[in-house]
């Protein structure tokens, strides 16, 4: 087994009386994609926000690339975050900036001594990588949901992260655009070799992008394994999730 890039032990997080994470353990290996499945409000997004250092856990440990995230401060934390790519559920594009400025934003602030030509080339390559070079001078409000997701991913890739965290990458998208986003997630892994955690409740997304699936039930990972291993489990809560198709 390759080295572990994320190691989570006994992670707990509550908001008031709401105990969201009740002792989560997870290992993510280099080059691996893990999908975290669970119902809305089950704490999936909280988990990756803790990994990225956006939220503090109540207890437990989160080691990312060998560093205890909770103890990182200032420049150490900034340097750590450059190795993490975070694709937000609603893309989180800076709506007062053009697409070009959105992609430039992390680059000009974190990579010193880049010429204008180098920045332009990096931005164009980034957009070309997600097939949206033509949107370079548009504003985020002029784009569709799928385009915004792609550009959000392109922006996170500008700093060449070692780990990608995808928060609901296909939510709010039509099935065809969802398939395109799933393909993009796989392309990103092939192109960059980055390990990923994909937060989703979309089984197609989990099946097509993940090596392993972790099922978050009642604040803990009750099932971790391949898609088939997890969904052959007779647990009623897992089967409810799998058997849901559509309501007539």
């Amino acid at each position: 087994m390759s080295e572990s890039v994320i190691s989570i032990q006994g992670l707990r997080k509550s908001f008031g009386d709401l105990h969201v994470l009740r002792g989560v353990d997870l290992e993510l290996h280099r080059g691996e994609n893990v999908a975290v499945l669970g119902r809305s409000g089950s704490g999936k997004s909280v988990l990756i926000k803790i990994i990225a250092g956006l939220l503090k856990p109540d207890s437990g440990q989160v080691f990312v690339l060998g560093q205890d995230v909770e103890r990182l401060r200032g420049k150490e934390l900034d340097a750590f975050r450059q190795k993490i790519g975070f694709s937000f559920q609603n893309s989180a594009l800076y709506d007062s900036m053009s697409i070009r400025e959105n992609l430039e934003f992390p680059l000009v602030r974190n990579v010193r001594n880049l010429s204008r030509a180098e920045i332009n080339r990096a931005v164009e390559e980034g957009l070309d990588g997600v097939g949206l070079l033509q949107t370079i001078d548009q504003m985020p409000s002029e784009l569709s949901g799928g385009q915004r997701k792609r550009i959000g991913i392109a922006r996170t890739l500008m700093l060449k992260p070692e780990i990608m965290l995808y928060d609901e990458p296909t939510s709010g998208l039509d099935p065809i655009t969802s398939v395109e986003i799933n393909k993009l997630i796989n392309e990103v892994r092939e192109r960059t070799g980055a390990s990923s955690i994909v937060i989703t409740h979309d089984l197609t997304c989990a099946k097509t992008t993940a090596d392993r699936v972790a099922m978050l039930l009642d604040g803990t990972f009750e099932r971790i394994g391949t898609f088939e291993e997890v969904f052959t489990d007779p647990d009623e809560r897992v089967q409810q999730f799998y058997n849901y198709k559509f309501v007539e």
Partner: peptide, 21 residues
């Protein structure tokens, strides 16, 4: 309103995770 809206749409979080203050 602008910063509130950026907070709600996770744009502030996005800046933070991109290593920007």
């Amino acid at each position: 309103a602008e910063l509130g809206s950026m907070n709600v749409t996770e744009q502030i979080d996005a800046m933070e995770v991109s290593g920007t203050n």
